[in-house]
């Protein structure tokens, strides 16, 4: 099996002429536009990552500060039990 799909053409392009697609100004405009979009999306991505990181950090800090009730002493348990009207 051959490597390529070979096609025979009488003439593929006018070698002496410049390609009609060759236009640096249009290329530069598109480049700047795409570059701006790329930079903006990269900035947004970093921002989102930062927000997520900060969120995790805040959540973790709050979790540390939650005061856990210490286990009641044996006497306290009895008191609670005797206060019960039932």
């Amino acid at each position: 099996m051959s490597r390529y799909d070979y096609r025979v053409r009488r003439k593929l392009f006018n070698r002496g002429q410049e390609s009609s697609h060759k236009d640096f100004n249009s290329f530069e405009r598109k480049y700047n536009q795409r570059h701006r979009i790329q930079r903006a999306s990269r900035f947004l991505l970093i921002l989102i990552a930062l927000i997520v990181l900060i969120g995790i950090a805040v959540f973790a800090a709050k979790a540390d500060n939650i005061k856990k009730k210490s286990a009641p002493l044996e006497s306290e348990k009895e008191l609670a039990h005797t206060k019960n009207p039932l």
């Binding site: 490597r3 390529y4 799909d5 070979y6 096609r7 025979v8 009488r10």
Partner: peptide, 26 residues
């Protein structure tokens, strides 16, 4: 997809001596 390779024959078309062997080759 399979890659494409185009063989141009405009130079050969204009040369009578090359025409016959060229078509045999193709």
């Amino acid at each position: 997809r399979k890659k494409i390779f185009v063989i141009e024959e405009d130079e050969i078309e204009s040369n009578e001596d090359l025409k016959a062997p060229w078509f045999a080759l193709i």
